[in-house]
Design a binder for these strands. Sequence first.
DNA 1: CATTTATAATTGTCAAGGCAACTATATGGG
DNA 2: CCCATATAGTTGCCTTGACAATTATAAATG
Lengths: 152, 152
Amino acid sequence: MEKPTNPAETHDLSFGLLISMIRTELVRALEAELQTEGVDLRFTQFLALKRLALDGPMCAGELARAVDHDAGAMTRVIDQLETKGYVRRQPHEQDRRSMRIAVTDAGMATWRHIAKAHERTLERAQQELSPDERAQLMDSLERVLAALRAAE
Amino acid sequence: MEKPTNPAETHDLSFGLLISMIRTELVRALEAELQTEGVDLRFTQFLALKRLALDGPMCAGELARAVDHDAGAMTRVIDQLETKGYVRRQPHEQDRRSMRIAVTDAGMATWRHIAKAHERTLERAQQELSPDERAQLMDSLERVLAALRAAE
DNA sequence: CATTTATAATTGTCAAGGCAACTATATGGG
DNA sequence: CCCATATAGTTGCCTTGACAATTATAAATG
């Protein structure tokens, strides 16, 4: 320790880096769990499938917004999920521009299969926090997100 | 809108998605601040410059670990910072495999210039949180990260 | 009703990050 | 001392995601 470490930085991790690291580790942990279960899904594909499985069919743009993903990129994620047989594109009845993205039976089966793995991962991430602390954490994070989005 | 958009949806943000969203917004906000200041740095480049500016010269691998970045990718980040004139690669004296990455005067000047913008961004992100809540948030996040890294 | 404007999905392009292979050098065990 | 193994940095390759442009269709407006 010959190096003069800035005392304000002894917390060492800035908020941004900390958030980035947690995201990286969470993605890694979840993808590892999925692989262990023999399910070949990347993090983003997982998020999309989860959203569709929980909320039912929706169109591509809605899904993109729901998982905070670029619309162009979402097209390809849907392609991938469709190739795997987990979702299906159906024409929207009122709006011929729109697609209705629906989970297939195989997709639902996969979702049920991996839902527990997902919960295990989240549980593991928060295992050192009390229920109160978990609630507080989620609340704080939501307020941080809101503040960042409230543009200036 | 015939589908019952569950109002519970807003609270149904999973931890992973919430973290991802905050990271995205934080990166966006910081890069916007930097651009406003006329400084052409991406988030990762910023993190690397900050680390070097605060902790002094270190070798490439150390830097990569410090900002949680892939070593191969870090080589290119250093390339970019070197091209911009913000850092310099120097041979390591004891170990001829190693490089000593040091911030140049121009790099330091730039760092001083943008440090405040950085703080503004973090301040804005946490503006809705009390000092206690901020401390609690950092603490919880650190424990989450530790849990993710520890367990298996 | 024609025309402008807005929206949904897609596609092309490019930068960035992860991983594996490679080179050079260091280190530790016979 | 020599060899096996480990480590530092770099590079190539591939996937992902952001953004812009494109196409088709809907909605709004004169």
